[in-house]
């Protein structure tokens, strides 16, 4: 392993991370909810009355973020190298996996570890390991 010092952005990573934790704190202490994005989104697929508005509001907040950056003169463009086949396969796996495993990077990785949930510690270790292994196979064995 060699560290890519040119790509490494420690301060913006830490600062952005604190904002993510702050958002989870606001959602928890003001709305009483866990900021787990797959859970918030997944709950809309089986909508129950009185349980829709807060989910939509939170997700819309994420969705309009690039618009806000554009308004302050910092439009965001995201280069995505994956082809359509890879994006469809990845999307299906992420959708199925996060619902089956009850959480993703935010719900298990940030909120779950913050409250020292054993389930979330196991989930985070497993999706990280699977992510490391998959990247190894895709990049270095398949050479994609």
């Amino acid at each position: 392993m060699t560290i890519d010092w040119n790509a490494f952005t420690p301060w913006s990573a830490l600062g952005g991370g604190v904002l993510i934790g702050l958002a989870a704190a606001v959602f928890l202490l003001v709305n009483g909810r866990i900021a787990g994005i797959s859970g918030v989104l997944g709950g809309l697929l089986q909508p129950r009355s009185g349980d829709i508005g807060w989910r939509l509001a939170f997700l819309i907040g994420l969705l309009v973020t690039p618009l806000l950056f554009m308004l302050v003169g910092q439009p965001q463009t995201v280069p995505i190298a994956s082809g359509y086949g890879a994006l469809i396969l990845a999307g299906l796996l992420v959708g199925l996996g996060t619902r089956l495993g009850s959480g993703c990077t935010s719900g298990h990785g940030v909120c779950g570890i913050s409250r020292l949930s054993p389930r979330s510690l196991v989930a985070t270790a497993l999706f990280m390991l699977a992510g490391f292994a998959t990247t190894l196979v895709v990049r270095h064995l398949l050479g994609m």
Binding site: I37, S38, L41, L62, I80, S82, A86, L87, L89, A90, G91, L92, L93, V94, G95, L96, G97, T98, R99, L100, G101, S102, C104, T105, S106, H108, R119, V122, A123, T124, L126, F127, M128, L129, A130, G131, F132, A133, T134, T135, V138
Partner: peptide, 22 residues
């Protein structure tokens, strides 16, 4: 088993495209 299988499937999808739900 659901937690374990789900987290592994998610990790594989995450590793393919580098995208998670947020």
């Amino acid at each position: 088993r659901r937690l374990i299988a789900g987290s592994l499937l998610f990790g594989v999808g995450w590793g393919i495209a580098g995208l998670c739900p947020g």
